[in-house]
Design a protein around this nucleic acid. Structure first.
Lengths: 219, 219
DNA sequence: GTTTAGCTGACAGGAAGCTGAACGGCAAAG
DNA sequence: CTTTGCCGTTCAGCTTCCTGTCAGCTAAAC
């Protein structure tokens, strides 16, 4: 499940992001509303975790404008205050859930799972890339000859490219996403996986920028 | 919207019932779990408000058995306690929302409206999957050679997959649906049941995604 | 032509998953 | 009360296929 976490506190944000990742979801962390808007413009998300105390605007207004634009993405509010009027305001603005800081990470996980359960069966947002149809949430790719399954590593690399369409992603950036901080691999693993990706998805899906990295193709 | 309110305190029960009625919904008030079971056997409900402190049994167990029977009716828990473990237990037992007493009736209304929005238009007792015809409510599956019976565990796993067609369901997610929050099983039970499911329903009904989980097949 | 970066087929090792068998518990049947 | 059969769980051995590595190759840069 793709989750957008809007939170300006680096400590809390990092902890929540790690927890989400540990649950098998894919978190993106936005420290400001402006940054969140950029991410939302380029990527679909399955859940938004929204801190109300942000430096560049009222979270409630952000949520309201999101709903006004027709977005149905579930939103869970995180806030330090627990005044009932605020909770009502949040829920009326279109929030689906409400958590008061400090909260237990385990409870957050349970609630995220509840959202996942609740929205199961809803069609996932699809990304179209040439002849490929990509369902990020389901890790599924439909090609011209039916379903294409990727292994975990293959998926991570493909996803890293999908997350930055048009941008160059360096090998070291990809390595950072695959491996733990310290344990480095000293070989051409990335190249091997890019090769496997191209074999499964088509030659043009990944472009090579010599000396720089890779970029998503536009076939 | 038909709402079943399970609450033994006559004062609070009456107030909530009146509030629900004022919102244009149809409330039934059950003071005990036994009475609630009778009502559920005869009437379908769109939402259940469940008090946890009831005279004739643990509300959590009631909820769990409801889910085990395949009910997908949304359940909102009302409780006087706000211990985090209890909230987690409730959400993991299959609750969709959680309110702590004393709560504001206006907030309750907002949350009920959210559920109504969420579940607007929700028919579908019969699911077709390839040659299988599945009646979720009746726990019945008709295959090409007649009726197929599943054991309880087999059904829970199959249902977990049915609830998220096309999506990946991890083993830990399935475990969460089968077992209580703390009691973990340290073996390949899920794998054994998947194996048995495939034997009964057909090889292609369940797909394996290495390292991720399982997915409903598309035969 | 030489150098350098990147590509890819092959392969060993191991992790993840599958499944037949067995065992104890429990409930229905006798 | 005993028997019977089903169900849930565990285990062991097997199969599958993922991963990281290397070697030799291709293609771009100069």
């Amino acid at each position: 499940m793709r989750i957008l976490l809007i939170e300006d506190d680096p400590g809390l944000g990092g902890a929540v992001r790690d927890q989400i990742a540990a649950e098998g979801h894919v978190p993106d962390l936005a420290p400001t509303l402006a940054y969140a808007r950029d991410l939302l413009a380029t990527m679909p998300y399955d859940l938004i975790l929204l801190d109300l105390g942000l430096p560049d605007g009222r979270g409630i207004d952000f949520l309201r404008s999101l709903r006004a634009k027709g977005s149905v993405t579930p939103v869970m509010i995180l806030t330090a205050h627990d005044r009932i009027t605020e909770r009502i305001e949040g829920l009326n603005a279109g929030a689906d859930d409400y958590m008061v800081k400090p909260f237990d990470l385990a409870e957050l996980s349970a609630r995220i799972a509840a959202v996942a359960r609740r929205y199961a069966g809803n069609p996932n947002p699809l990304i179209t890339l040439g002849r490929l149809e990509i369902d990020l949430a389901a890790h599924a790719i439909h090609g011209p000859e039916g379903q294409i399954d990727l292994s975990q590593r293959e998926w991570i690399i493909f996803e890293a490219l999908l997350q930055r369409p048009g941008q160059i992603v360096s090998k070291s950036q990809i390595e950072d996403q695959i491996y733990a901080f310290d344990s480095e691999v000293e070989s051409n693993t990335i190249e091997v996986y890019v090769s496997r990706l191209r074999k499964k998805l088509g030659k043009d899906v990944v472009q090579t920028l010599r000396g720089l990295g890779y970029r998503l193709g536009t076939p």
